[in-house]
Amino acid sequence: MTAPAAAPGDPPLIEALHAGRVLGGTVPVTLVKDATLTIGKGEFVAITGPSGSGKSSLLYLLGLLDHPTSGEVRIRGEATAGMDDDERASLRLATIGFVFQFHFLLPEFSALANVMIPMRRLGVRSDREMRTRAEEILASLGLADHGHKRPDQLSGGQRQRVAVARALANDPPLILADEPTGSLDTKSTGQVFDILDGIVRREGRTVVAVTHDLDLAGRMQRRIHLVDGMIVSDKAATAPVA
C-alpha cells in the first residue's frame, strides 16, 4: 500500500472521508457509498471496477464536479462542502485538470487555442507566455506540428493528447482522467498511457485514472477497486511497472 508521501503538517492532495453520492428521485440510486481514501502528491492511481460500479462518479466527486450527498471531499486539507459553485470552479481551474473518454475539445478551435482556453480563463499569463506554454506542452506530447489543426483534422490519439495538454495547461498538481484510453486503439492507448506515466514520474503530478483495462491498471502504482459503489480494495499494483 502506498502510504501518503506527505510530511506531517502538509495535508494530502486529496482526501475523501466517507463520501457518498445518491441520485435522488422516486427510486434513489446509490452511485458511491462511504468512500474513504487519501491520495498524495506524485501518485499514479487507477480506479477500476465493473461497469456501473461508480468509478466515474467517484472521480467526479474527487474532481469537485459533483457534490457528495454524504461525507466530504478535501483538497489539500481544505473542506469543499461549504464552497459555492464559483469557488469550486476556481479550484478546478487552477488545481485539477480533466481528461475524459471523449476528447471534448471545442471543435471550432485549433489544438493550440484549445490548450490556451484554461490559461486564458485563469488570466495570469500574458498572451505571449500562454502561446509559448501551449506550444511547449503540445511539443512535449509529440504534437509540435499539429497546433494549428482543428480537432476534426487530428486522429483519435492525437485529439486525446491535445486533451491531456489542455488538462496540463494551468500546471495543476492533479490530473483526473475518466477512461482516457477508452476509445483509442492499442497504439494510441500506449502513447497516452506513457504520457500520463511521464507526467507522474517526471513532473511529480498526481494522476487518477478511471479505467476498465486491467492491464493498464496493473501498470499503475496503486489500484482502487470498486464494486457497487464501494471501495473493496485499495493497494499497490501487483504487477511491476514496466
Binding site: 459553485d85 470552479a89 485539477i96 480533466f98 471534448f104 482556453i117 484554461p118
Partner: peptide, 16 residues
C-alpha cells in the same frame, strides 16, 4: 451543451 459542460468542468463559472 457539451461545450458548456466541458468549459464548466475546466473551471468556468456559471456567470461566465
Amino acid at each position: 451543451a457539451r461545450d458548456i459542460a466541458i468549459l464548466k468542468s475546466l473551471g468556468f463559472r456559471a456567470a461566465d
